[in-house]
Amino acid sequence: MRYLFYFVLFCTVSISCSREVMDPQTGSLAVRFDNVVGGADLNLNGTTYTNSSGEPYTISALNYFVSNIRLRKVDGSEYVVPQDSSYFLVRESDATSQTIRLNNVPLAQYTGLSFLVGVDSLRSVSGVDKRTGVLDPGTGSHTSGMAWDWNTGYIFMKLEGTSPVVNPDATGNRNYRFHIGLFGRNGTPNNLRRVSIAFDGASVTPDNPARSLVTIRANVQTIFAGRTRLSLAQSPNIMIAPKSSEVADNYAGMFSFGNLTTGPQ
């Protein structure tokens, strides 16, 4: 009996010691996506901007999926956010959607993060039971028009608005529409892009409740002028055409580190 006692005690102590911090071991981290156009905050519908092709345009919608987030530690290793907790839909029209909260993050110093713009190919072909939250075709994504039902797949990034250089469509409006999806099924282009952001040498530690906020800037101008310069007059509608990959390449470059703040969120 005595030996059993010491055995249990030993096991308990070893288990306790094997975990660096017992409680709390994890914290939360908030990440805000700040959509901007050049140096200015993005203003839906109201403001006319000019792209690098010299074309004036307005923006009526900007939505994108952020998923499969990984946090990079000081030593270069990564914490992979559990996948079921790693799908977010950022919508310019909904301020609360622009700040995402990562919970149960192991306590460590993180110097950067990476994420997919879009929904990974595996989840894009998963059963209906895996399509919950923002992936639910009955609530989140479809309400925001972020999925195709006739050719099952999510729209990774949607940018819509008007431009005087575009010819009027059937509605009589000079609309442009970028609906970028496709994940490589049936040999279609794979427009999934992983974006990696370094916190400019700074590091952040999760906290409970979340006090740390990483702001990532998303500059819409880059969608028109990243790797490829796009012209709204030439391509007002880009959805499933091969040009969709050029848009994906461009928007993959629109994200940059904004700043890091700590304090009550």
Binding site: V8, L9, D84
Partner: peptide, 21 residues
């Protein structure tokens, strides 16, 4: 010790518990 052990168990982070559901 057993109580402590149970406590540790309870403290485990539960990945995915902040599920989207």
């Amino acid at each position: 010790v057993v109580a402590l052990w149970c406590g540790i168990w309870a403290c485990q982070p539960k990945p995915g518990t902040d599920n989207i559901n």
